[in-house]
Design a binder for these strands. Structure first.
Lengths: 146, 146
DNA sequence: GTAGGGTCTGTAGTAACTACAGACTCAAGA
DNA sequence: TCTTGAGTCTGTAGTTACTACAGACCCTAC
């Protein structure tokens, strides 16, 4: 009785629902090559099993962590190769972490300028405004080069 | 002699160069309705004066501060109306500042997860990897709802 | 006159989705 | 059985904010 195997068979919308994603995104990832094409039923409907559920979860988690699709593709290639190493995954993740930190630094810069100018703002019904002065001035902020 | 008025007349690429922007972006902003269409010379070349230089600078500064084009459009409408108030500008800027802070919070969340998992990573040539475990797990991170 | 570089307009591509439309499928209800 | 409404399919297009390319025209130095 315990050797009964319960396999999952869900359609696209159900897959999206189970993974907290969007059904169109599922198709998009398939088109992008991140999700392998699943089996189909007689009507041509996609039928997903456990493998696809796991795979999609991986992709979604990585996206949530801010990895680009290309970066996700790289991680998947490591995993798919079957001989990923902790070292390689770590290298990629640290690169990504550095990007995240750079973005934070950028946003903090912006936050500082905004906070400073709004606090200098009288908030009155007057036409003079430090914020507009900032926007009208020569370059005052620095952003990380793209 | 001091009543000599020097007016600026530059073409698109020069305008972009003077403002540190991209000549295609200039056209894009015109198409988007943020930059009024300038005068043209006999050949049909756009000729920009001081007004346009100032206007483009405003837009670029606002973009650097992370305002969306729609938000910039709103700020410009205030300025163009000629009776902007410090109160209204401040309200919009504070809304935007709140967005920036939310983004920072999001990224910090991501940073925390990434830093934690990479530090747990042995960095060795082994197949076990906490980062992949994180990506393979059920939802572990929370993001601000879009 | 020629050549090379600049400007024009229009269109398309990028990244990462998201939505829509017409055609087909499915299942419940009359 | 037929109808209806919802679901799935494929293909295409739209969003945001750019960026690039192509063919046609303009400009200037040689």
């Amino acid at each position: 009785m315990s050797d009964r195997i319960v396999t999952t068979s869900v359609q696209r919308a159900e897959l999206a629902k189970r993974t907290g994603s969007n059904l169109e995104t599922v198709r998009y990832y398939e088109k992008a090559g991140l999700m392998p094409e699943p089996q189909r039923n007689r009507s041509g409907y996609r039928i997903y099993g456990d493998y696809h559920i796991r795979r999609l979860r991986f992709i979604l988690r990585a996206r949530e962590l801010g990895f680009t699709l290309e970066e996700v593709r790289g991680l998947l290639a490591l995993v798919d190769g079957g001989h990923q190493t902790c070292a390689e995954v770590q290298a990629r993740t640290e690169r990504h972490l550095a990007d995240v930190r750079a973005k934070i630094a950028d946003l903090k810069r912006i936050e500082r300028v905004l906070a400073k100018t709004t606090s200098a703002c009288s908030g009155l019904d007057v036409p003079d405004c430090p914020i507009l002065e900032t926007l009208n001035s020569e370059r005052t902020i620095r952003r990380r080069a793209k």
